[in-house]
Amino acid sequence: MPPRLRKLIGTILIIILVLLYALIATTVAAATLGSSPWWIHLAYFLFTGILWVLPAMLIIKWMEKPGKSGGK
């Protein structure tokens, strides 16, 4: 796959990942953390705010693979 196409696909995947992840994390928080103390909210959003980086790193790593010609 040409590097430009891989980067386009990866960029679209990251945008979709961020949108879906934010929607799911917010929905879970609204459904489960309603009466929790403030520090539970803080811990949850710190954790979920960092967790999305892991799948994004995998997508970026895939995007940066060299093409079949050996160059980027």
Score class of each variant (00 low, 15 high):
P2H: 11
P2E: 11
P3H: 09
R4E: 15
K7D: 09
K7E: 12
K7R: 13
L8G: 10
I9K: 06
I9T: 04
I9H: 08
G10F: 03
G10Y: 04
I12F: 11
L13I: 04
I14C: 04
I14K: 05
I15S: 09
I16G: 03
L17Y: 00
L19P: 03
L19D: 02
L20E: 01
A22F: 08
L23T: 10
L23Q: 10
I24L: 11
A25H: 02
A25E: 02
T26V: 13
A30Y: 15
T32P: 00
T32G: 04
T32V: 09
L33I: 05
G34D: 02
G34H: 08
P37L: 02
P37F: 09
P37D: 10
W38G: 15
W38K: 12
W38E: 15
I40N: 11
H41T: 05
H41R: 02
H41P: 05
H41Y: 12
Y44I: 07
F45W: 07
F45P: 14
F45Q: 02
F45I: 11
F47D: 14
F47V: 15
G49V: 08
I50Q: 08
I50N: 05
L51T: 09
V53C: 08
V53I: 12
L54E: 06
L54R: 07
P55N: 06
M57A: 14
L58Q: 09
L58R: 06
I59P: 00
I60C: 07
K61E: 10
K61A: 14
M63T: 00
M63P: 01
K65M: 11
K65Y: 09
P66G: 05
P66M: 05
G67D: 08
K68T: 04
K68P: 04
S69L: 12
G70S: 06
G71A: 12
G71Y: 08
